[in-house]
């Protein structure tokens, strides 16, 4: 038993050594850590003076109209004296949580469905892939409006639900294709000759071999989720009880400050692109790493 643990530890060390070698991943993770720090710093910043710095209910009574960066307001304020830096920090939190949760949920659902459809084939494949097709053709925005209507409100939870439900079909298609080709590989056949049952073949033999691709798509999905959330918020379908980068952009646009206040417009736009880009970088690095054929030989 001890040996197995040692081996696991050395495996993790090996992966870590590979990660450290990849410039893409290093760069991506560095950017991500930056935003992570921002997210963690958000409550600390609010704590300094909640009445002024709370991104939802706070506002600086001494400020009239939007002002540029100052010591008190590192990024300036919006038109009613709300601190933009505070909003940006909160936006980092929301983007992280939402992006991560959407990608984890949709990757787990997508991988499970892709594996089942690909391995069992026949009626399972037909049913599940039709379902995926149907969901893929549903436009997200009207769907969001309809579902918000049903729940009577817009919240990040509904956005999370809709993004997860609309992102899994892409992943399941990829995993299914991968499973189809893996299913014919001799090591699956030899597992079957060894008497290994279907469930164990899926869990032990197929899943670990599609994991790298699933992981890659997880990072791609984070990018997608962040961008879609920003788009939805910008169009006014964000969670009104919270703040996100997309909503910052929306307010800037609605209040007519796009050209008047670059300190309001640029930071959230930059953050959206950078965070999305960091996951993209990690994805590229992972793909290179887990697909040794791309690198070696």
């Amino acid at each position: 038993m001890k040996k197995i643990e040692n081996k696991k530890a050395s495996q993790i060390r090996q992966i870590w050594a590979l990660v450290r070698k990849s410039t893409f991943i290093k760069l991506g993770v560095s950017i991500m850590i930056l935003f992570g720090i921002m997210a963690v710093f958000s409550p600390i910043w609010i704590h300094i003076n909640p009445e002024v710095y709370d991104p939802i209910i706070g506002a600086d009574p001494n400020v009239h109209g939007s002002v540029g960066p100052s010591l008190q307001h590192p990024l300036g304020t919006d038109d009613i004296g709300k601190d933009l830096f505070s909003q940006l920090l909160r936006g980092s939190q929301v983007a992280f949580m939402l992006g991560m949760m959407v990608s984890v949920f949709s990757t787990i659902i997508g991988a499970a469905i892709g594996l089942i459809a690909g391995y069992y084939g026949k009626i399972w494949d037909t049913l599940l892939m039709r379902l995926a097709d149907i969901i893929l053709t549903l436009p997200r925005l009207p769907l969001l409006i309809v579902i918000s209507g049903i729940f009577g409100t817009q919240s990040n939870w509904i956005i999370l639900l809709i993004l997860s439900l609309t992102f899994w079909p892409i992943i399941s298609r990829v995993i299914r294709a991968q499973t189809l080709s893996l299913r014919e590989r001799p090591f699956i056949e030899s597992a079957r000759v060894s008497g290994v049952g279907n469930t164990r073949i899926i869990v032990k033999h197929l899943a670990p071999n599609v994991l790298p691709i699933a992981f890659y798509y997880l990072t791609v999905t984070v990018t997608g989720a962040i961008l879609v959330e920003a788009g939805l918020s910008f169009l006014g379908f964000g969670d009104p009880s919270n703040m996100s980068w997309g909503m910052m952009l929306q307010w800037c646009f609605v209040k007519g400050y796009v050209f008047k206040a670059p300190y309001w417009m640029i930071p959230p736009g930059l953050c959206i692109s950078l965070l999305a880009f960091s996951f993209y970088l990690i994805g590229v690095g992972l793909e290179e790493m887990v697909n040794p054929r791309l690198k070696k030989r």
């Binding site: 081996k7 001799p186 090591f187 056949e189 030899s190 032990k204 033999h205 670990p208």
Partner: peptide, 13 residues
């Protein structure tokens, strides 16, 4: 099996 490079799962010890 014929090909020992294919018949062993690369991710299993």
């Amino acid at each position: 099996f014929q090909d020992p490079y294919e018949s062993l799962n690369p991710r299993l010890t």
